[in-house]
């Protein structure tokens, strides 16, 4: 079993549904996003276009963040996921400096001290989820571990209205994700850095 994802940029419309789904699922603090969408202008008027790229942790097989972590807090779970043991993380931010995709962030303020907007009171659900975020530790996508344990799809892929995100088992040749990666000749981002991401991309950015 090796989890992986395909992101088809030709299908992505940059609606941000994956960003919101991730935020709702994981209750990340203000200004912390485990899932980003980048925008870019290409061409010149009258042929100008807006391109989008949906970006989250690449869960690399040769992850720079795992290699530089001095405490081993960032680790491979053996199923293609790169996870963080918050009890081990000392908040040195080596992983932030090392990630070529600019994915990890640091939880610098407790969510209860930094509400989403002034006067916002956390819902009971938010109060429960925010306990998973520890001040002074790394923040990054954990591929919805609770959902995977229940056999469900990850939140970002489930929410995508254009099915530009496909998630599944890369080791299973019959899985949607494995088939589409092969059919569409999907490639990882920044392949020349030899980080071996388990997230593959189709389309140009």
């Amino acid at each position: 079993m090796k989890y992986g994802m395909l992101v088809d940029l030709d299908l992505c419309v940059g609606c941000g549904a994956c960003v919101m789904a991730c935020k709702l699922e994981n209750g990340t603090a203000l200004d912390i996003h485990w899932c980003h969408v980048l925008f870019k202008e290409v061409g010149k008027y009258p042929n100008a276009k807006m391109k989008v790229m949906s970006l989250s942790c690449m869960h690399c097989e040769n992850a720079p963040c795992v290699n530089v972590c001095p405490t081993g807090a960032t680790y491979y779970d053996g199923e293609g996921n790169v996870l963080v043991d918050l009890n081990k993380c000392i908040g040195c931010r080596s992983c932030l400096a090392a990630c070529p995709y600019n994915i990890p962030d640091i939880c610098s303020v407790a969510q209860k001290d930094n509400p989403y907007w002034e006067g916002h009171e956390m819902t009971p659900l938010e109060k429960i989820i925010c306990q998973d975020h520890v001040v002074g530790t790394k923040e990054k996508c954990d591929r919805c571990q609770d959902r995977l344990a229940e056999g469900r799809n990850v939140a970002c892929a489930e929410a995508c209205p254009t099915k530009s995100r496909v998630f599944g088992d890369l080791d299973d040749p019959n899985s949607d994700v494995a088939k589409q990666i092969l059919e569409k000749n999907a490639q990882p981002l920044l392949g020349h850095l030899k980080t071996k991401p388990t997230v593959y991309y189709v389309g140009k950015f």
Binding site: P70, T71, C89, R93, S94
Partner: peptide, 23 residues
């Protein structure tokens, strides 16, 4: 002063990650 979790500093040594340049 730069670390986010000083109380967990012991984790650098137990067990250390030898591939980390910080170690």
């Amino acid at each position: 002063a730069d670390l986010g979790g000083l109380t967990k500093l012991w984790n650098i040594l137990a067990p250390p990650n030898f591939s980390s340049p910080l170690f």
